[in-house]
């Protein structure tokens, strides 16, 4: 297999809230076009990990590289870095006062300083990609959860990021709406986008992930390709956790 470019590398990331040590030395890396899925019990620090990688929530300790270049934290630099990392939220977080189109455009016009016309074309293209072109003029409150999340994905995509991070993108959705979001994510993975996804949708993980990371208590317990981690895990905790989520979410 040819050696692919490394997009993101994280080394020994630590984060505490008071005495609560949420991240206790996380290291991981993602190569171009890879999809990594993070699973783990609630309160384990999965969301914290994603927000720390993006400095939305600065880590206490640890080093992060993007495309081989180490990120040196400063207010000015970090805005540039964030442009290159898309983020899709569990609660969608669409901007309430902007239409679907406006939500996708705002990053282009305000951050990347693109002309209105150019931004609109790009935004329409991204909305089409997620099958939301018909709803371009609708406001978030007029869209279903699944539709909102697809706009959220389009908003991240429009910035042409190096990778997109998803924090439980389907867990606020009714089961019948999950499919449309997961399908879009699968499509992105197949098109070669680099994805870092926190989810408990094991069907998605098995079909799409190059690697699954099992995290607990702020540490990575086990990491490996789906065949190994799901079918043949090494650690006792991994086995127990997988049993629990198959009970909880059913097989697929």
């Amino acid at each position: 297999m040819e050696e692919r470019k490394e997009i993101l590398r994280v080394e020994d990331l630590h984060k505490s809230y008071g005495t609560n040590k949420v991240l206790q030395g996380i290291s991981l890396n993602i190569k171009q076009g890879q999809t990594k899925v993070i699973i783990g019990p609630s309160g384990t620090g999965k969301s914290t990990l994603l927000t720390c990688v993006n400095y939305l929530n600065p880590p206490d300790k640890g080093r992060i590289w993007l495309e081989g270049e180490e990120i040196i934290y400063s207010e000015r630099e970090i805005n540039k870095i964030r442009q290159k990392k898309g983020f899709v939220f569990q609660q969608f977080n669409l901007f309430n006062h902007l239409t679907a189109l406006g939500n996708v455009m705002v990053g282009l016009t305000e951050v990347l300083k693109k002309k209105k016309k150019e931004a609109r074309e790009k935004a329409m293209y991204e909305l089409e990609r997620v099958g939301m072109a018909d709803c371009a003029e609708q406001y978030p409150a007029e869209l279903s959860g699944g539709q909102q999340q697809r706009v959220g994905i389009a908003r991240a995509l429009a910035m042409d990021p190096l990778l997109i991070m998803f924090d439980e993108p389907t867990s606020a959705l009714d089961p019948e709406l999950m499919g449309e979001v997961l399908d879009n994510m699968t499509k992105l993975a197949l098109e070669g986008m680099t994805l870092l996804v926190v989810t408990h949708e094991m069907g998605f993980a098995r079909a799409v992930a190059d690697d699954i990371i099992f995290m607990e208590n702020g540490r990575i317990v086990e990491e490996g390709p789906p065949e190994k981690l799901i079918m043949n895990p090494e650690k006792k905790r991994t086995i127990e956790f997988l049993q629990k989520i198959t009970q909880l979410y059913g097989e697929d």
Binding site: N79, R82, Q83, F89, F92, F95, G107, M159
Partner: peptide, 14 residues
């Protein structure tokens, strides 16, 4: 919602 600020920052806005 606080998420509005977070989402804006995640796009790289100051």
């Amino acid at each position: 919602a606080r998420g509005q600020m977070t989402a804006a920052r995640s796009l790289g806005m100051s």
